[in-house]
């Protein structure tokens, strides 16, 4: 990369890519724009034909409702999301390490079990948790929801982390072993740092699933103590009426903190971690 022309061409190309990237992102996010549009539209204009590209006659009614009603629900959702991420990583990372690197007996059947449990319909899972939580008195608790929501993510976490950890070069583990590290040390100080991307990926999705869960929340949590945003939205869906602008506004407002979190997290996915480690 020492050729004089290279940086110039690169910069030019990079700009072109940024433009394309923005275009692609815009296309992807068009439905999101449409949601924002609806959140600002008065009820009588919502179904106008042809539709309005832009809310010419905006109403902030939806947003006023949301800020009044939904802030506690968002805090609850954030707490559940973060708790769920912690629980999922704690269970799935060690298991994935074992499956990827220690060749345990029964790894194949275990993989099957992980697949099977993901196919259990959410409603049946919810019914099961309900039966247990009624007896434990865990209904309407944030903890209960964290445990329930994590069931969406744990099998996913194990399978994905396993796929990634098989890519960790064996010689690194051996080197650690030669340095006298036990398996736990190897896991904590070699495998986990190398799996940063994968851990982050799993965390992202765990968070997103917990954030958008509706079935568990609606079955296990109804009292004000632990109502997440997805349930809060249902306050705007009456049995005969629907306040669309409030629903969409809730979705918009609720996605802002989570979106910031995502963008920040994405920045931390550093490139070429494994490559760097091998070189050193």
């Amino acid at each position: 990369m020492t050729a004089l022309t290279q940086p110039v061409r690169r910069r030019h190309r990079a700009r072109w890519k940024t433009v394309l990237g923005i275009a692609l992102t815009a296309a992807m996010l068009f439905p999101v724009y449409w949601m924002v549009n609806v959140s600002l539209t008065r009820t009588e204009d919502m179904r106008s034909d042809p539709p309005h590209w832009f809310p010419w006659n905006p109403t902030l009614e939806g947003y006023a409702n949301v800020l009044d009603d939904q802030l506690p629900a968002m805090t609850t959702s954030l707490g559940i999301g973060v708790g769920c991420v912690a629980l999922t990583l704690l269970v799935s990372a060690p298991a994935a390490f074992a499956l990827a690197k220690l060749r345990p007996w029964g790894a194949g059947p275990l993989t099957f079990v992980l697949l099977v449990v993901q196919m259990i319909p959410g409603v049946v899972m919810a019914i099961g948790f309900y039966a247990v939580y009624v007896r434990l008195g865990w209904l309407n608790t944030v903890w209960g929801l964290i445990l329930a929501d994590s069931t969406i993510a744990v099998p996913f976490g194990v399978l994905v982390l396993t796929a990634f950890m098989t890519g960790v070069p064996g010689e690194l583990l051996q080197a650690a072993r030669i340095d006298g590290a036990g398996r736990w040390r190897t896991f904590v100080s070699v495998v986990l740092p190398l799996s940063r991307n994968a851990l982050l990926t799993v965390s992202l999705f765990t968070f997103l699933w917990a954030w958008s869960d509706f079935i568990f929340a609606s079955t296990l949590s109804r009292n004000a103590d632990a109502v997440p945003v997805t349930l809060g939205i249902y306050a705007y869906i009456g049995n005969n009426t629907t306040q669309w602008n409030s629903i969409m506004a809730t979705a918009v407002v609720a996605s802002v903190p989570a979106a910031v979190l995502l963008v920040v997290a994405q920045r931390y996915v550093a490139g070429g971690v494994v490559a760097g480690a091998v070189k050193d």
Partner: peptide, 19 residues
């Protein structure tokens, strides 16, 4: 902007499915 745009791609996942 690649990291930011990549993050933006996840925004659809933040929306409740009903929305």
């Amino acid at each position: 902007l690649s990291a930011v745009l990549r993050g933006m791609f996840l925004v659809p996942w933040l929306l409740p499915l009903i929305v």
